[in-house]
Design a protein around this nucleic acid. Sequence first.
DNA 1: AGCAATTCTCTTTTT
DNA 2: GAGAATTGCT
Length: 673
Amino acid sequence: MCLKTPKTELLEEEKQIQVTINNYIDEFKHIKFNAGAGAGKTHALKESLLYIVNKYGMKLKYHNQQILCITYTNVATNEIKERIGNSSLVKVSTIHERIWELIKDYQKELVQIHQEKVSNELIETQATLNNPDIVKYKKFQDLDEANQETLRQILLDNRELYYKNKDKNAATFKTAFQGIVDSSMMSNVGQFKDIIKAIYKISNYQICLTKIDTKEYKTVVYDSKQNTDSLHRMKVSHETLLEYGLKIVDKYDTLKKIIINKFPYILIDEYQDTAENVIKIINLLSMYSEQINYNLFIGYFGDTAQNIYDIGVGSNIDEIHPNLVSVNKRFNRRSAKQVIEVINKIRNDHIEQISIYEDDDCGSVKFYQGSEDKINDFITQCRIDLNISDTNKLHCFVLKNELVAKYNGFENIYNSFKDTSLYSGVNYQALNTELVTYDKTKLGVIQNIFYKIIELQQLLVNPKTPISDMLNEKIYEGFNFKELFDLIELLKSISGNTLKEYIESIFNNYENSETKGYKKKVEDIFKEIDTYTLENLVSYILEKLYRDIGDEQLEESKEKIEILLSIPISEYIKWFEFVNRVEKQDIIYHTYHGTKGLEFDNVLVIMENKFGKETNKFSNFFSNPNSGDENTKNLLYVACSRARKNLKIFYLDDVSSFRNGIESIFGNIYIYE
DNA sequence: AGCAATTCTCTTTTT
DNA sequence: GAGAATTGCT
């Protein structure tokens, strides 16, 4: 037996910890619950919620009050909702959703806060443009006032020209503005573009402030789909929402009162990932409740060692919200003792876990020195050593999504999208969000069309698919049996080896068949397109993936789209399965970050040093594990603590100069050749 | 040659 | 959008 039988006395102690938490809840003492990986943190959160519901539910209901539970992600929100059963007494949501709901009705106050922000930004931008220390603005600063004003007018009148050419190369840009702006201004096109950007920004802010004054702008909007503010359009994104939330709560005691009256219990999941401004808001509520002698309970649940995003407050929480009572849990309900021993050494702090199980001696941890070209051989070896099969899978961790795409079999799709103008430049990160994702709602526009095509293909291939899955209710509504049969036969006749061939086959039927319902199905997939020809589809893709290109790049871009469409449909299926987390192989690849909250029997951590601007990420860490590099330490902790039984680390380089650091954590180093 | 200008290259995740 | 690498100009 392995990890099945908990020790009775430890179970008793575990119960006692919950009793401690419950007592603090009764006494309205704010707590910080710390528990390492696999300790059952979410379980404790759930127990606490249920305790409050059971003991104080009637009272809360009577006063029309609720328990507020804040999570970091929508996924976590849904999980907690599921675990507690949908209780109307518990309000579970992400922080952004909740804050916006609480403040959105205070538009007068919000607009005022927004106005202050825009004014400050305006002053700052103007100051920067006139700051002699900033070299790139020198050409503008050298003009006299009258000439500055003339230039400003000219540029404002030529906005369209600028946006059309801003991503073109320097020579093209110069030509575009030839005769409009003196060429001496443009001797350095990069600097000239920066001057234009500053001028547009200033103008936008000024117009915005005027419109606020004249009451044309009366509301501020939070747009959860946007990742950047659009202040001059009265739109704010995630970060600024929290900033405004803090300001408005700070400013208005009435709002504080309303919030704590409605929510006398506030529980925060994964507090280490929560933004500082959120902790500040909660601290304000806490101080206010003391001031007016009102009973409020705040519970933070988390683990500072699992703070792997810069945004999170981490251990700074004690400075922002002081005097929290610490409750620690030292049990591990996930891993074998060999794994626990190692992860304790990695985190190396006051939380030293012990297994809750009697049968905890059933794991292994091994650190290997290898090289990149040996990865596949090594995995083959792991298959044998660990008895890997469809029912006993091996989960491999890599740092980057690029490798996840490659190892999961859709390298060409990844590279094709990466090569588009949409994902080059500042927007390159969006590629991962819109292609290498487990969340269909995040797929990019083109990815979404491809997804729907493969979805249809997969449904047709799978003989068990019920008809209701194959077609939207609306499409086959009122069909008789023969009509339905004909439609399915026609759909099944669609074929092709590449995506392009498959699409052509779909379009072909569209032209030549009058089968009832077929056209609707096609229109459902290609909602954004009006005529169903490959040519038209290509120009749609061109418009979406290659916006703002000149005529000279047109042919080249079309060729790239051709390559994208010529990828075999089998590769698209692999991508489709990845998005849906269909794990057909016995080896599954993840990013380190993406595994947070998950657990696997067998884990292989593939360790490379290059990660963004860091070129010696892990070698530096192992050279001095106590150097204070929390980011690498926490990432290593999160990765290794996913393993239930067997953990292997495969380091892709020579380790001789920092063996001690590795051995102090993982013990013996094995050389794989 | 020496400096200026332009182009290339980059991580993870969440809202 | 910053810093490195490459190309271009005089």
